[in-house]
């Protein structure tokens, strides 16, 4: 397997939002889902997950409530709020635009300059 890619600065938030947009999850579940949808190609620091979650909750993009997990244990579930949904959209747009610009730059040939 290829070596996992390190996360770019500030992208963890986006990934978390995307992960919970697909349905409410607890913290561990969010981790698994990100790994799943990235097909395990991203290296996620587990320790930085929860501070990010708390930050996102503090800012109002996600909301939390306690519920029961699959094996009937108490766990804290996070879901996307309406504002969070909009935030995810904006961030995704920004990311795509940025990716366009960067790849454009990287593809430029000497003649185009």
């Amino acid at each position: 397997m290829d070596k996992q890619l390190e996360l770019l600065q500030g992208t963890l938030d986006m990934l978390i939002l995307k992960a919970v947009s697909l349905g409410p999850l607890h913290g561990y579940g969010i981790l698994l889902r990100i790994q799943q949808i990235s097909k395990d190609r991203l290296e996620i620091q587990q320790g930085s997950l929860y501070p990010a979650l708390y930050r996102l909750e503090h800012q109002g993009w996600i909301a939390s409530e306690w519920g029961e997990s699959e094996n009937n244990r108490k766990a804290k579930y996070y879901r996307l709020t309406a504002a969070g949904k909009r935030k995810l959209q904006t961030e995704a747009e920004k990311w795509n635009r940025m990716a366009d610009v960067i790849s454009g730059i990287l593809q430029s040939t000497p003649e185009e300059v």
């Binding site: 607890h26 913290g27 929860y50 108490k74």
Partner: peptide, 16 residues
Amino acid sequence: REMDAELRFHIEAFAE
């Protein structure tokens, strides 16, 4: 307490 429980849950889930 909640934070503590949450993190513990995470570690135990991973361990499981």
